[in-house]
Computed example of a mutant assay.
Amino acid sequence: MPRLSPGLLRYAHISNPLLRLLLPVCRDVESARNELRWLQDHAQRLAPPSHSSQTWQTRLQVMVRQRATGKPLQYILGTEYFGDLEIVCRPGVLIPRQDTAASVAHLAQILQSSDSLPSRLRVLDLCTGTGCIPLLLDHLLSHSRDPPELQLLGVDVSQKCVDLAEENKARCQARYTEFARADVIAGGSSQAPSLLALLQDRASPQWDVLTSNPPYISSHAFVHTTARSVRKFEPKLALVPPPAGVSEIPADGDLFYPKLLDVADHVQTQVALFEVADLSQALRVASLVRDKGSWEGVEIWRDEPGAKDDSFAHVAQTMGDLRILGRGNGRSVVCWRDQGATWLGRT
């Protein structure tokens, strides 16, 4: 990362000493000014009306110093937008990302335009974190022109995540979403029940759509390429799969995907959407889908899946007829079979 010039730092300090503190983490003056404005608004909202301006100014200074250490802005402000929803964020739970929201919204848009959806659509979201994915699907699908009867279930191994997801459910006034604690990885070290035991207890044999933003960062990438603020402040449990001992998977960041595909088979999923880190991982996961032999089709969505397709000859050569949709980095792997092909318009 390039160093900031002394002249730029002096300019920021003269403008506002708090701006100078934010500049190293924001990297440019405009971004630092925006963050300072958001933090000031937040400090003023939190200050009791009867208190003097010194109260919110003191709070603002504390927030700016927290941000200067690299603490994510979302943890300081307490929320982050995910599509149209404002999602509560807290330390210990992964912060929702806008590129995830873009994939989820694109999936919802395709499903909304389908004339062949079942009268009852069941969506299972694994590694749900804040609950943002099922809550956005609930919001978008329930407000479509002719919405199906919806049932959405978000599952996470962390009770802290489940509790926060429940809070977000109330905040978003979601009517069709529930949350539960369970371990997606069979034989995991957590005290949570296994996912299949949870689904059996709930008499839930079939889930039409399966979504997941699982831990997908390899242990090597976490140390060497993951942003320092992410390593320091966001939960490693939600970023890096747990150690699995000897594995046939070449990258330990891929650990969850074979299990997710097994779950999808078990619950007879028709459409699955898995978030990935980048195009290289997307290609590996797409290969896993094809090797599984139980899916009719698979494609990769980029950060902006609704944008015009990009052409990458080397991908076509290595993956045959695999389609890569949109603009940006590889973000999601989408696969389908049976009725799902019709729902997605892939017949």
Rank of each mutant, 00 (worst) to 15 (best):
S52H: 09
R37S: 15
L9K: 05
Y176K: 04
S212V: 15
I249S: 03
L135I: 11
Q98G: 12
Q281S: 05
S119G: 09
L325K: 10
L77V: 12
G306K: 06
H314E: 10
S15V: 15
A316G: 10
T69K: 09
D28A: 02
T211K: 04
K232N: 14
Q40D: 12
Y75N: 08
L273R: 04
A341P: 09
L140R: 12
Q151W: 01
G188S: 06
A182T: 06
V223M: 09
A192Y: 03
P205G: 13
V276E: 04
P242Q: 07
R231V: 09
T100A: 11
G131T: 03
F179R: 03
E86T: 11
L121E: 01
W207T: 01
P91M: 10
P214M: 07
F274V: 08
A108W: 02
A203W: 03
R231I: 10
P96E: 13
S218M: 02
D41P: 01
S212N: 08
A102D: 14
L344H: 08
R145A: 13
P215R: 03
S189Q: 08
R331Q: 07
R346M: 04
S280P: 05
Q268E: 14
S53E: 15
T69I: 01
P96M: 08
D125T: 06
V104M: 10
R145D: 03
L237N: 00
A286K: 07
D146C: 04
D201N: 10
R45K: 07
A102V: 06
S116K: 12
A316K: 06
Q54H: 08
D254W: 08
A197T: 14
R90P: 00
D183I: 07
F274Y: 14
Y257C: 08
A221H: 06
R33D: 11
C26L: 09
G188P: 03
S194N: 05
V62N: 01
A102W: 00
S158W: 01
D303S: 15
Q40A: 05
A203T: 09
S103T: 14
A286S: 15
L136I: 07
P48T: 10
K232T: 12
V25R: 12
Q206A: 15
L22E: 06
V285P: 13
A192E: 14
L261W: 06
Q61H: 11
W336V: 12
T130D: 09
L279E: 10
V223A: 14
C89K: 01
V29H: 00
A282M: 04
A313F: 04
L9I: 15
R45A: 15
V157Q: 09
L46R: 00
E166V: 01
A43L: 03
W38M: 10
G297K: 07
R175A: 14
L322E: 12
E234A: 06
V25S: 14
T55E: 09
A43D: 02
R20P: 03
P91Q: 07
K232M: 11
D303C: 14
L140M: 12
N329W: 03
Y11V: 15
E248N: 05
S31Q: 11
K71A: 11
P215D: 10
C335R: 05
R59H: 12
H266I: 01
R231C: 15
I14H: 02
G253M: 06
S50N: 08
P134T: 12
